Computed example of a mutant assay.
Amino acid sequence: MKIDVDAFAPTGKLRASINLGNPILANVDPKTGEPFGVSIDLARAFAERLGVELELVVFDSAGKSVQAVGEERADFGFFAVDPLRGEKIAFTAPYVLIEGFYLVHQDSPIQTNDEVDQPHNRVVVGKGSAYDLFLTRELKKAPIVRAPTSPAVVQTFLEQGLEVAAGVKQQLEADARQIAGLRLLGERFMVIQQAMGVPKSRGEAAALALREFVEEMKASGFVADALRKHGIAGASVAPAA
């Protein structure tokens, strides 16, 4: 379908909201300081499709990235699908599926996910992350502690002597390899559907165009190639919508 460029880039540039809080999708090159990753590859491909200049609007947390799109300080972004976020943002179908896991101290009595939701278990999450939104709804007894960003979850977990950390499996595994005395529980507590999104105020035609773009990128192998190129293990291409 023909894409209305003005609906996506009213300022003349296509502003992509990038969340560095999810290392599976975006990181910063330590030498150049430039963002790179699967979401950046998709943003560039979409800008090329529209024939406009791309501007990366970079944030350190999902909450800030979502807010930028909801307030139209960015034209589209990359988020975990969530009903609360869907009030202002029109989501595509997911392009990548990521697992959420719990991390505990090696000597913790907690062995299964079912044992987490207890009043004495404080669960730390990245503020505004998909885990924060999901666990705020799902946990009935366990108090939630919010770290400033998702990469700061394990640091907060250790500094405050908390019982449980929740986050991206790969990030928690990497932290557990570097820090002795930590272990992941044996099963995921959620599957995160990573999608693209555009402000609902841009109209249904814009939302449909973005949805079709994502389906094409999955079907063509673009997303799978991006995951391989960036060495991402543990995340999978989402099925066709």
Results as ranks from 00 to 15, higher is better:
Asp114Gly: 15
Glu72Ile: 11
Gly161His: 05
Val154Thr: 14
Gly86Asn: 11
Ile144His: 01
Pro109Asp: 04
Asp4Leu: 09
Val223Cys: 08
Gly197Ile: 01
Arg228Glu: 14
Ala174Gly: 15
Arg49Lys: 15
Ile179Gly: 01
Arg183Cys: 13
Phe189Trp: 13
Asp6Ile: 12
Leu182Arg: 13
Pro148Asn: 04
Glu87Met: 10
Val116Lys: 09
Gln171Thr: 06
Ala209Tyr: 11
Ala240Asn: 08
Gly12Val: 03
Leu208His: 11
Gly128Arg: 09
Ala130Phe: 07
Ala80Thr: 10
Glu48His: 06
Ala26Glu: 10
Gly126Met: 00
Leu182His: 10
Ile98Leu: 07
Ile40Leu: 13
Glu138Leu: 09
Asn19Asp: 15
Lys2Thr: 15
Leu97Val: 08
Val57Asp: 14
Lys127Arg: 13
Ala207Gly: 12
Pro199Trp: 01
Ala209His: 07
Thr136Ala: 13
Ala80Tyr: 04
Ala142Cys: 00
Gln155Thr: 06
Asp41Asn: 15
Leu227Ser: 14
Gly126Gln: 07
Leu172Lys: 10
Leu162Gly: 09
Pro239Glu: 09
Leu25Ile: 07
Glu34Met: 01
Met190Leu: 15
Asp82Met: 08
Val198Arg: 04
Glu216Ala: 13
Ile3Thr: 15
Ala207Ser: 13
Ala147Trp: 01
Ala9Thr: 04
Ala176Val: 12
Phe78Tyr: 15
Gln170Asn: 12
His230Pro: 14
Gln67Lys: 09
Gly234Glu: 00
Gln118Pro: 11
Ile179Met: 06
Leu182Lys: 08
Gln160Cys: 00
Gly181Ile: 12
Ala224Trp: 11
Arg85Val: 08
Val198Pro: 02
Phe213Pro: 12
Glu48Pro: 05
Ala80Phe: 08
Ser220Lys: 12
Val153His: 04
Ala9Asn: 05
